[in-house]
């Protein structure tokens, strides 16, 4: 008679492999045999985790089709098992998995599409934060402005792809009408994923604006962020950029470097 630990070890390995003989020996077989009974749990695991991936990655699913998605999910589930009782945390390595997945090799844009969808998922659940009150900046002397460090709202993610992922994303939305063709050699996208009210949105960003926000999000002071943006675009409009991202609550806190 197995102890609890021995039973759970054997049961777990029966769920991961096709061999359930160890566990089946401890299961009564009135009607259905033990293998069949364990198979119910094994299938349930695959279906539950595949559905969880499906709900986070609908665009990846549309791109590769239902059959391939289930195949990919099946491989993913075994390579990157769930580590939390909270299913919302499952699947963040899907982009990495797709970039290593031999069967998806001819589709190098897929990992970036997955990254975009995971960013949306995270932004949907991320913490709320009060907007920055511009008047609070009056405590900072003008000579310290370049040392200002801004914090991004928790519900913001920045992404850069060398593929036109926004076009790919857009033509694969339910209800999209028109030409679904995408030219993969078109310029890549830089995006800000954000939450406004309850809704998740994606804004495309100009290269300098993206560079500015990435530098800020890395904890660098305003002076450095401006310099990085100006390297991308000598006409970078800082005033417009700063006002826009404070007004839309992307920049929400400040401190001095």
């Amino acid at each position: 008679m197995p102890g609890l630990r021995e039973l759970q070890r054997a049961f777990s390995s029966s769920l991961r492999s096709e061999d359930a003989s160890q566990t089946a020996a401890w299961v009564s077989a009135n009607g259905l045999n033990g293998d069949r009974r364990i198979q119910i749990y094994r299938n349930n695991l695959v279906v539950t985790l595949t559905d969880a991936l499906r709900s986070v990655y609908p665009v990846v699913e549309r791109l590769v089709g239902d059959g391939f998605f289930r195949f990919a999910a099946h491989e993913f589930i075994h390579q990157y098992p769930s580590r939390h009782g909270n299913l919302h945390l499952f699947g963040h390595e899907f982009a990495r998995f797709l970039s290593e997945f031999a069967a998806a090799k001819g589709h190098a844009y897929l990992p970036d599409v997955a990254r975009l969808e995971w960013a949306q998922h995270e932004v949907y659940h991320a913490a709320d934060h009060a907007p920055l009150e511009p008047q609070s900046l009056t405590v900072i002397g003008p000579d310290r402005y370049e040392s200002l460090c801004f914090a991004l709202h928790p519900a913001r993610r920045l992404l850069h792809s060398s593929y036109p992922i926004m076009r790919i994303w857009e033509v694969n939305q339910a209800g999209f009408e028109g030409n679904q063709a995408v030219d993969l050699s078109a310029p890549g996208d830089r995006v800000l994923v954000l939450r406004i009210d309850r809704e998740v949105k994606i804004h495309t960003l100009a290269p300098a604006e993206y560079q500015f926000l990435v530098t800020i999000s890395n904890g660098k002071p305003l002076g450095q962020a401006v310099a990085a943006a100006l390297e991308q675009d000598r006409d970078f409009d800082l005033t417009r950029c700063l006002v826009k991202h404070v007004q839309s609550s992307t920049l929400v806190d400040f401190s001095l470097a």
């Binding site: 549309r62 391939f68 190098a108 844009y109 970036d112 050699s185």
Partner: peptide, 26 residues
């Protein structure tokens, strides 16, 4: 049911993505 060979090839809207597929990811 994951072992059917037909599943190994993406067969969705990715067929409408053209050009530049060999470009390295970001």
């Amino acid at each position: 049911g994951q072992k059917d060979a037909w599943l190994f090839v993406p067969k969705g809207t990715c067929e409408k993505l053209v050009g530049g597929t060999t470009k390295a990811g970001a």
